[in-house]
Each structure stands twice: as C-alpha cells, then as structure tokens.
Amino acid sequence: MLVTWKYRPRNTFIQRLDPRTRLIFLFSVIFALTIPEIWDFRIILPLFAVSLTLYLMARIEWKDVRRAWLFIIVFVVFIVGINGVLSGRGGPSSVTNIESPILFYVPLLRELGWKVPITVSKVWFALNQIVRMLTMAILAIPIPYTMDPNIYGTAFKRMGASDNFSFTMDLAFRFLPTFARDFTITVDAQRARGYEMEALKGGLAERIRRLAPLIIPVVMQSTVTGEEVIDAMDLRAFGTNKRTWIKQLHYAPRDYFILGLGAAIFIACCVLKWGFGIGGFFVPDFFTNWLVG
C-alpha cells in the first residue's frame, strides 16, 4: 500500500486553485525559462518574485518543508552552483567563452597542475543559475503539501492524458513517501544489527557495497508493493473499460487569472528573446565593477 505526503487542507488561495491550473502554471514558468533560454537577471528576478509570492501564499509550515528545502538548497547550491563556477557548463556557451576578468584559480588535481580559472562571468552565471532553479523549485515544492492526493490522477486525466497514464502518475506521486517510510524502517532494522552509516569507509565501490544492506531490502519491498498494487487493480477490473473518474474539477475565475498569467509569462519570454533579442546571458557592469573594482 502507498502512503501519502503530508497534505493538509488549508483555506488558502493556492489550495482553492484547480490542480490543473497549478501544474500548467508550473510548466509555463519552466518552459518560459528553458525554451527561449532566458539567462537575463532582469527577467529571472521578477519571475523569482512571482514564484516566491505564490510560495508564501501557500502558507506551508516550515517544519513540514524543512527537509525538502534542505535537499533543494544542497542540490541547487552545490551541484548547480559549483558546477557552474568550475566548468560554466549547463548554460550558454558565452559563459566560458567571453573575456572576463579572472578572480582567482581553484587548484584541482594539484599533481597534474590543473587550475580552474574563476571568472566574474562564471560567478555571475552561477548566481543566475541558482536563482533560476529556485524560481522553478519553489513552485514545485508546495505541490505535495498543498494538493489533495485524491485529485492527482483526475488532474492529469482532465488535462487529456489516458486512464493508464493518469493513474500511473497518481501512484507515482505517492510512491516516494512510501519509499521513504520503508527506508526508515530498514535503517532502523539494520542499525539494530550494529550497522552504522557514519562508519562508511573506503573508496567509492566499497561505500556502495556497504550501502547494500539499506538499498536491497527497500528495493525488494518496493517491487513487492508494485506487484501487490497490480494484483489489487486487476481484481477490481482496472483497464477493462473506459474509466469514470468520480472527482470532478471546475475552473473558477481565479484559475483563469493564474492561467492567463502563466501564458503571459511564457509568451513574453519568447517574444523578448526571439523578437527583441533580450534575455540572453550577460554580466552587468555593476557586478564586474563590484568584484574587480
């Protein structure tokens, strides 16, 4: 059986929105930033402000999302930020190509004498990339906590997906917390056998091998859960007819407002980039001046 996220009904504007509206708006922002490849802080910052406003309007308690935030911040800052600074990859080629004052070198693999130059451009790019990722992430973080798990499937169905796909999404949403629950039980069970995660020593291969006592039981458990769900669905005639989805969804004026806003953001980004050439990566003078004086 699958468990659900820490969803709780709240009387907020965000939770009164149709789930489709929220998914479509999320994708509008993601596509607006990625399809026309927007890297201009003058566009990213206002979008970040919109996302942040919507996030705050969801009024989620900090204790609920603490872990999610920790994960997102570690992911965005370390993976994206450091990757951006060190290699400049993941962004437009101008990041690594343009002449930019070098701030300092990071010695990597000292024996080979390989030093990575950190330029003003790379630092600005990393900052932009972090804000850009957060703009998308903070729209997604509240969804599991503020969207009724009962309407995941219906939302996809009403957006035109097939019965199978919609129910798959419904189950997939709930799979992660189930996985987390099984993982906690297994960690406890192995700790009771003297296993200490802190004591993971040795090289990468050895460390992975040492993780087997946690990973194997959880994977086995997930496989069994998957098979159980399939049997249970078969016994109740899933997939034999065209399905009736009992929950109904209706757009309200507020939904049209948010959908309109999403469409406007997407169109504006496309027009700015392709029509006026605004939105590409550049390092503003104030930043260069501030760093190199």
């Binding site: 059986m1 249970a232 007819n241 399905r243 009736t244 989805w245």
Partner: peptide
Amino acid sequence: PERQIVASNVFNEIAFGPENLGLPR
C-alpha cells in the same frame, strides 16, 4: 487490506471498482 488499497482516500478507494467499470457518476 494494505495490499488491496490503491486509492489515497476512503471514498475514492470504495469507488475504484465501479469507476473502472465505467459506470455513470
């Protein structure tokens, strides 16, 4: 029963079979 339950709330769980049969709402 944990193996049998596929929906996340009770009403949806009970409705799951008839929904699959495509009965009117």
